[in-house]
Design a binder for these strands. Structure first.
Lengths: 341, 341
DNA sequence: TGTTAAAATGCAATCGTTTGCAATACATTC
DNA sequence: GAATGTATTGCAAACGATTGCATTTTAACA
């Protein structure tokens, strides 16, 4: 095997020209004659040479990398487990790969301004996509003040100065609830948590009930996981506190957990002791929801569209073009789980 | 706002010392007196300074980054959709973050040796974790020959010289099949594809049947998605070719797709026309499998353990320590879906 | 063939760190 | 106070690419 050529200067020697010429030839500059350009490109391919991105980035003062940051706010906030978030990450990865950018994935447990800012200061990333708005509205101010490009997945709020991509959570909560009302449900509960990102879903739920003159129950506090949905619902069932004919779940995972708890519970009971069926609507439309039996009625948050828009919006900022938060279509997907009563 | 200090030289001026001193102080070198060291560190914190990683990496000839590469072999091989892979990615991201490394995520549609090698040549990554062994055994040779550290998720094979982490696919297929046999199934089908990674599952299936003197059917070709499981099964049901009392599915997604097809089919038919129930075992144990009704019997591939081992094994290589492929525990998780007959 | 403009190439500075070595400061001892 | 040794610090050369400007080559024309 020939001595490996790993730098521009190696290539220069190999081709008998200067480093500048090689550099220009490889970037297809028309300063270089077509003949030498092609010759050098062929040579590079043959020698299996590719420029050192680190050096290149240093010189160009950019990183060609987008940081995707998961802000973890509590023990139970397992973003790296959530199928919806994971799917969204997959889409983003595809998008970034497509346009030639690298994706840097990191999760932060106790996020602070500097941790985020550091991605830019240390020139690790040219832009950032953040999951988890959290409860610290000042968290993003540092970034904003130094105009570092970033987008947040989540709810748009007039008070926030940063850009977001997400569905209309108020509308989502409302659509879900209205649907259950139309199905004839009278005692509708809301299962989930009140995070900044999802609080509006709960308000949408309350609003719909109010307009229909139906009572709203206090929120059933459940983390966004299958397991917690299952645990909490099981407890309610066992203590006979599970007396709803409709449930609005803050995520599909929660909804599926609850459904499972219900099925398991009834499976072990005599007919007389069984809990009564109920209708349920989820949120997200993760892929598996369609394949449950009964399939899950839910509010779709289109992951493909969402991922694309996040990237698109981020690059608008990077290129200093005008940009506005986007609200994805917020749509009820009607399936089997809401026809159980 | 004071002029922002963004380089070592800025810091040097600020502190009234040389760049070298700042550099050493920040890396806690004992060459620098404790007093100035602390002073400078405080100053850096206050000025919100952090070293430029790009420059640092160039100088140190490393990237502090691990590339995670998804090799996509066909249109239908949607790794970025697969819940099992996505979950594994989440674990890896957590692990890498924990030890202070960045994770670079990329998918490649038409992988070739150079595309992979390029991550090292261009100094983008110090190591690589690969998903998708594919059908080109020579694909990794370039990497091996230039001893670039990488690990592959998948099946261990004596012919392969590279390191892998994964379950014992032969055993997995066998356990799944034996379990169905023990449940009394007589006509057991295998649903999935024959990729390098999973071919052994099929052989395990065949082996178990052979040992039990039962006939094996030809493989039902299904891509590793819910949807394809659903589509193919539906077609079989409609053409009355669905006459198995047991199915070994090559993934949980396939299994769930099939179950759904079955449920949907029977829901629209008269009792007399309904397809007969069957037992089914999946593969992976994705989280949702536990929350199906009936819950899915499956072969667990522990994602947490798997992710940790991948990272661990990779770093053994990076640090030039002896390393061997690891085979994760391959275990049948018995649940409801295999007691249907 | 000589002159001039245009095309192609090369020189050298720069991006922000780290680190071997040289240089300075300080403390210690006689 | 001189001499020695030890702690601290600074100088300057890398790391590998890009690019404005200077320089050379080529082409074109008289």
């Amino acid at each position: 095997m020939r001595k490996k050529v790993s730098t521009l200067s190696d290539m220069a020697k190999l081709a008998g020209v200067s480093e500048s010429t090689v550099s220009r030839a490889l970037s297809n500059s028309k300063l270089i004659s077509v003949k030498t350009r092609e010759r050098i490109q062929a040579l590079a391919k043959e020698a299996n040479f590719s420029v050192n991105t680190t050096a290149r980035n240093l010189r160009l003062q950019k990183s060609n990398t987008i940081a995707v940051v998961l802000l973890i706010h509590s023990e139970n906030d397992q973003s790296t487990t959530d199928p919806f978030i994971l799917r969204l990450l997959g889409v983003i990865a595809d998008e970034l790969t497509r346009i030639g950018y690298d994706m840097l994935l990191a999760s932060h447990t106790s996020p602070n301004e500097n941790a985020l800012k550091n991605y830019f200061d240390s020139k690790k990333a040219d832009g950032m996509i953040v999951f988890g708005q959290g409860n610290d509205p000042a968290l993003f101010d540092h970034l904003l003040n130094n105009d570092m490009p970033f987008v947040v997945w989540g709810t748009k709020d007039p008070h926030q100065r940063y850009l977001t991509v997400g569905t209309d959570n108020f509308l989502g909560g409302k659509l879900a609830t209205e649907h259950l009302i139309n199905q004839g449900c009278k005692h509708i509960a809301y299962a989930g948590r009140k995070t900044i990102e999802t609080e509006l879903r709960f308000h949408g739920y309350q609003d719909a009930l109010e307009k229909a003159d139906l009572p709203s129950s206090p929120l059933i506090d459940i983390h966004f996981t299958y397991q917690d949905g299952y645990n909490v619902a099981t407890k309610l069932l066992e203590t006979q506190q599970f007396n709803f004919d409709g449930i609005v779940a803050a995520s599909d995972t929660i909804a599926l957990g609850i459904l499972k708890a219900f099925n398991d519970f009834n499976a072990e009971k005599e007919l007389s002791e069984q809990a009564k069926p109920f209708s349920i609507v989820g949120y997200d439309d993760i892929e598996v929801s369609k394949f449950m039996h009964p399939s899950l009625t839910t509010i779709r948050q289109d992951t493909y569209e969402g991922g694309k828009r996040l990237v698109e919006l981020l690059f608008k900022q990077i290129h200093k073009k005008p940009a506005h938060s986007v609200e994805l279509e917020t749509k009820l997907i009607e399936r089997g789980s809401s026809k159980l009563v």
